[in-house]
Lab assay of single mutants.
Amino acid sequence: EVHFESHGEEQAMRVVKMLKKRNLTVEVKVENNKWIITAK
């Protein structure tokens, strides 16, 4: 499981795309203006 924190939507979306290319399940949450990305 991979956790990634991002402060910007643009950066977060880039990471999500990259993770999805690896056929991982990606969950995105926004907490306290931080984008929290979890990949399994």
Rank of each mutant, 00 (worst) to 15 (best):
F4M: 05
S6N: 04
E31N: 06
R14E: 08
R14Q: 07
R22L: 15
E10Y: 11
E1T: 13
K40N: 07
V16G: 01
R22F: 14
A39V: 15
E10L: 12
K29I: 09
F4D: 04
T25H: 13
V16N: 02
T25K: 11
K17S: 11
V2M: 13
M18R: 08
K17M: 13
G8C: 15
K34D: 02
V2K: 06
K20V: 10
G8H: 14
I37F: 02
K21V: 06
H3K: 12
V30A: 03
E10W: 13
R14L: 10
V16W: 03
T38W: 05
M18F: 10
V28E: 00
K40T: 11
K29M: 07
M18P: 02
F4P: 04
K17F: 14
V26Y: 06
G8W: 14
E9R: 13
A12F: 06
K34V: 13
K34E: 02
V28A: 02
Q11H: 12
V2F: 15
I37A: 00
A12E: 01
M13K: 08
N23Y: 15
A39I: 14
K20I: 11
K21F: 11
L24G: 02
K34Y: 07
V30N: 06
K40D: 03
G8T: 15
L24W: 14
G8F: 14
S6H: 06
E1K: 10
E31G: 04
E9N: 04
S6E: 12
V2L: 14
T38Y: 06
M18K: 05
E1I: 13
H3A: 08
I37Q: 00
T38H: 07
N32D: 11
N32T: 03
E5V: 14
E1P: 11
V16I: 14
V26G: 01
K40V: 09
T25D: 08
N32M: 05
N23F: 15
F4V: 06
E27Y: 12
A12P: 01
F4Y: 12
N33G: 15
L24S: 02
V26A: 02
V15M: 12
E10I: 10
E9T: 07
E31Y: 09
N23A: 06
V16H: 02
R14F: 08
A39C: 14
A12M: 09
W35I: 06
E27W: 11
E10P: 05
M13P: 01
R22P: 01
V26Q: 00
L24Y: 15
K20M: 12
L19W: 05
N23R: 11
I36S: 03
H7L: 12
K40R: 13
E9V: 10
A12K: 02
E27K: 06
E9P: 10
E9D: 03
E5A: 07
A12H: 03
S6C: 15
